[in-house]
Structures are given as structure tokens and as C-alpha cells.
Computed example of a mutant assay.
Amino acid sequence: METPSRVRSASPLWATLVAFGLAVFGIVATQFTTLPAIFLEPALIESPGDTSIGARALLMTLNFLGFALAGAIYLAATDRGWSYVDLRMPTKRGWLYVLAGIVGSLVFYFLVSILIQLLSLPATDNQVMQYIAGDQTMILVMILIVFFFNAPAEEFLFRNVIQKRLYEAFSRFQAVLVASAIFALIHFPVYLAASGDPLAIGPSDLLATTVPLVVVFGGSVIFGYVYAKTDNLVVPTAAHAAFNAFQFGLVYLALEFDLETGEPVQSLLVDLLAVVPV
């Protein structure tokens, strides 16, 4: 349902600044929520791959809880309350949008993967790969974290809080694009840091960082769209979780088939199509 123009009385600039501030607040919150894990296992800072699976899982779980905490604080501070949260069991139509979100994100991901291979584009993996450290068991743990913490927390903050806040100043489609741009933008430092020394970043590093951000932005647009069409947080959360689980599944299969796991996850998809029997 389109937001009536008479309701969109907020300044687009101010709404965008608030939305971006909420995203930054979410990042800052994760720095505090992860402190217990780092206190228990300081090696998580320098060499996470050498720590126990339990320590890594705790860190990742607390990290995503930081996003949920930021959203909850905003709702409380602005007197929006929990009634603002669009959480309910999807209808048959809602489940169809879940399916559309999953299929749409996977098709987009496949097309980007093919393009990366055809153009030989460099692509940087998320720093999360440092916490997996080639451990198949950790991949399975991450899939569970994706379903119960990652997707719910990110969709709550970026869809139900940030995107919905943008409805006050933009049309729903515009709000989807702005929220997705912000979602991609906050991932930029993460991918940039994973590409090498931030003080020695060159054009190729910037390109390698931009490629995965295209995937992040595109996926966010798809999840934002299904949320805008259903006003139900469960719909984008389910699609998001399935998409991320698919990405981790690719890494698991790459290890299973002894592929070069140093490649970006996007490239692994094309490689796996050549070795996995169909």
C-alpha cells in the first residue's frame, strides 16, 4: 500500500540523515554487544580462526544482536513502541512474496556471479570468512546464526525501522532504494578492510570492494521490495535468511569438493556448477 502524499511531510534530507544515523548507531551498538565475547576470548580480535567455534559463534551472535538493540532503543526513544514492529505469520500471499524474494535474490546473485567470471572482476569476501577459517562445522553454525540472529536483526533495523521511517518522506519505492543504499554503504568499510591494508588501497582494491556491494545493494532492494508489498517483517527475513544460507552453503560445498576457497563466494558458484553433478 502506497503511503499517502499527505503523510509524507518529513524532509527527505532529514529522513535520510536519520536513517543513516540509525545505521551507524547499529554499527556502534555491535561494538558494545560483542565485548563479552572478546573479554572471554581476546584472540578473536587478532586471529579469530584460531579460536574455538563457541567463541566465534558467540561473537557473531552478539554482533547481530547489536542491530536489534539499536532498533529497539530507537523505538523506545521515539515512543513508537513494539506495535511499530510488523511481525505476524504471513498469509498465503505473504509466503508467495517470500518465495519471490528467495528466487529473485538467487537469480540476481547468479547473474552477478556469471558477470564476475566473464569480466574477470576482482571481488572481496566479507570479513565473516575470517571467522569461518575453512571450518565446515563453523559454516553450519553460521547458517543457524543466519536464520535466528543475522537476518532477523538486520531486517528489523533496516526494513522495519529504517525503511519504514523513510516512508514519512519518500514513496515506498524510493524508500527501498535509499534504505538499500545505506545498507550497502555501511558494508563498505567491512569489505574494504578485508581487501587489505586500508592505508594502501588502490583502484583494484576499490573495484574488488564495489563488486560485492552490488550484490548487497541488489539483495537489499529485493528484500525491501517484498517488505514494502507485505508490511510483514517475516517475509524479507525469511527470504534474507535463505539467501545468506545459500551463500554459506556454497562455501561448504567448495570445501567438500576441495575447490579454491580463497576465491570470492560469487566466483565459487560458477565453479561449483562445473563439478557438482545435476
Rank of each mutant, 00 (worst) to 15 (best):
L140Y: 01
E41W: 06
I102R: 07
T210A: 15
L115W: 08
A254Y: 01
L69I: 04
E263D: 14
P36A: 08
F20R: 08
R8M: 10
Y131D: 12
A200H: 14
S9H: 09
L269D: 08
E155Y: 00
A29C: 02
V251W: 06
T3D: 03
S220P: 11
A228N: 01
A194R: 13
P264G: 00
A228Y: 07
F25S: 14
R56D: 02
Y97D: 10
A57G: 01
M129A: 13
A77Q: 07
T30W: 03
Q174E: 15
G134T: 06
A254R: 01
I143V: 15
S267Y: 12
L115F: 10
L75S: 03
L106G: 09
L40Y: 00
D79C: 07
Y97S: 06
D205H: 15
N160K: 00
L255M: 06
P152G: 00
V107L: 01
S180N: 00
L140R: 13
D86K: 14
R159V: 02
M89L: 14
F248R: 06
V251T: 09
T34Y: 10
A193E: 14
W14V: 14
A194W: 05
S220Y: 02
A37I: 05
V18H: 05
A19N: 02
I201E: 00
L192M: 14
Y109D: 06
A68I: 11
T261S: 09
L273M: 15
M142N: 13
S11C: 04
S220M: 08
Q130K: 15
L40S: 04
V215Y: 02
T3N: 07
A179M: 11
D231C: 06
A153R: 11
L268P: 01
H187F: 10
L272F: 01
I186W: 15
Y74H: 05
R6Q: 13
G66M: 08
L99H: 09
Y74V: 01
L121S: 01
F20C: 02
R80D: 03
I27M: 15
D79W: 08
G104N: 06
L121P: 04
